[in-house]
Design a protein around this nucleic acid. Structure first.
Lengths: 128, 128
DNA sequence: GAATAACTACGAATAAATTCGTTGATAGAC
DNA sequence: GTCTATCAACGAATTTATTCGTAGTTATTC
């Protein structure tokens, strides 16, 4: 199905900006990343060129500065990464992942409620 | 706190075996991984030597074949990886992770129940 | 139209992860 | 004791990811 290679760490940072902005030039992405990583402009450029070559992003080359956007939706990519994680280090057990997720980050009451709603919704859906 | 470097992909496969077996020789780990990865024995050996140097595993060198075991418990490592993921690609939102986890893998009714119990237990705990 | 600035392209250096061949030592079989 | 199998050690090749310098092009400003 998806012939998208798995994004690397640096590529994920760039995708993060693109998901947030919808589309952006290399310059915009680079500014957004800001001092977050102390790398130069051409590094960001090169990465985004490689990402285009890999099929992770598309770009509109009609103008002088090319405009990039992510090929995969954020949720699709997230789902792929999480799915991989579940298989790889949780032996396919989603509940084991959830359990460690609850331990890993401090989850406040509001977020717990939200998670519970997700589960409830899912329970109802699978009953129907 | 933990000065354990983050395990790489290949290292995680080896840790998986060690977590399952408790402790094992290089040979045993290599067999367990089996054809799963088409690599030779010395590759596994080298990786495990590097892991020992990094502090990911300890080894008993008293016998001729050294016996390795993981330094971190499985849950500790899992928690670290999941925590990182939440910060890195879910902007700190545990519920977003759970949501995508539910979509990513097919979760059967029994597992849903189990997840719900985890949430319930957590809700009660945070009330007290 | 010359100088400056912003952009892409690209080669190449560096770094990190993975792989394996070879060597030398030790143990067990005969 | 000699042969064979098994082991650790280690150097080095390979691959992948990341970084940046330089060159060439196009737009903008004066």
């Amino acid at each position: 199905m998806s012939d998208h290679p798995r994004p690397t760490e640096a590529e994920l940072e760039i995708l993060g900006v693109l998901w947030q902005c919808g589309s952006a030039t290399v310059r915009e992405v680079h500014e957004q990343l800001g001092g977050l990583r102390g790398t130069g402009y051409t590094t960001t450029l090169k990465l985004m060129q490689l990402m285009a070559a890999k099929g992770l992003v598309l770009r509109d080359e009609s103008g002088r500065s090319h405009i990039y956007r992510a090929v995969q939706a954020k949720t699709t990519a997230q789902r792929q990464i999480v799915g991989r994680l579940i298989d790889q280090i949780f032996a396919g057990s989603t509940s084991a992942l959830v359990q460690q997720a609850l331990e890993a980050d401090s989850v406040d009451a509001a977020e717990l409620r939200e998670i519970r709603h997700l589960i409830d919704a899912r329970c109802n859906r699978s009953k129907s």
